[in-house]
Simulated scan of single mutants.
Amino acid sequence: MKVIGLAGWSGAGKTTLLTRLIPHFVAEGLRVSTIKHAHHNFDVDVPGKDSWVHRQSGATEVLVSSGRRWALMHELRDAPEPALREHLKRMSVVDLVVVEGFKADTHPKIEVHRAANGKPLLFPDDPAIVGIATDQKIDTRLPLADLDDIPAIATMILEFAAPIDELVASKALES
């Protein structure tokens, strides 16, 4: 299992890029999972459904299962947010885990940068950025790919993705 991140400011197109990369990897025969960091309160459950009622009643974890999928919801109940390394330990074995967000962590990341977003580049201040997917010319020694060049970005991701066991065992993911 290997891991790499897509990092960038909100509005840079990380999710759009990821939804184009996943089918590319799947067509190449890779099994891909994702971890998405949210900066706000979110819910994957439907208010009023039994599982929602279980959580609202105080359950720490609620697992919902059917013949097609299962989901585990864990309420932190004022506990600190787990580090990325803890989430990686929970993942089922696949070929590649792509992390969207967690931009302050030190796992290898491809920066997603869109000029129209008007935000500064992250790579000058983040040594964990190993490449850049962008729609503009940038003066850097890092590998660059155009945001629309999915094969080139996929190649960059596979080249720089790190083995999960090394990252989980290291101190690199403690932010």
Rank of each mutant, 00 (worst) to 15 (best):
I157G: 07
G11Y: 03
V64Q: 06
R31W: 00
V168H: 11
H40T: 05
V44Y: 11
P120R: 13
H107T: 02
T155L: 11
V26T: 12
A27C: 14
T16S: 07
A59W: 02
G118L: 01
S66R: 11
T16H: 06
P151T: 06
V112A: 05
V112H: 01
I153R: 05
D50E: 15
A59G: 08
T155A: 15
D43T: 15
L142N: 07
V64H: 06
S170Y: 01
G13W: 03
G118W: 00
I138Y: 03
D78F: 04
V168W: 03
Q56E: 15
R68S: 07
A162Q: 15
N41L: 11
A154Q: 13
D139P: 12
G67D: 06
V3K: 02
A115G: 11
E159P: 07
F102H: 04
L158S: 15
K89N: 10
L121V: 11
F25V: 04
I4L: 04
T60G: 14
L17C: 04
A7E: 05
M73A: 14
L142C: 09
H54G: 06
D165F: 02
L167F: 05
V97I: 02
I164A: 13
R90T: 09
A116F: 03
H24D: 12
Q56Y: 13
G48M: 11
Q56I: 14
T60L: 15
L72M: 13
G58A: 11
R85D: 12
A12E: 02
L30N: 02
E159L: 13
P47K: 14
S92R: 11
T15I: 10
T19E: 12
V98K: 01
K103M: 14
V46Q: 13
M91D: 00
H40Y: 04
H39G: 10
R85L: 10
V44P: 14
F42S: 14
V98P: 00
S51T: 13
L158E: 14
P47G: 08
I22N: 06
A152H: 05
P120I: 06
T140S: 13
M91L: 05
A154F: 09
S170N: 07
A133F: 00
M1K: 10
I22A: 05
H37I: 02
G58N: 09
A12D: 04
E86A: 13
I110V: 08
E81D: 04
L18G: 05
V93C: 03
T134I: 01
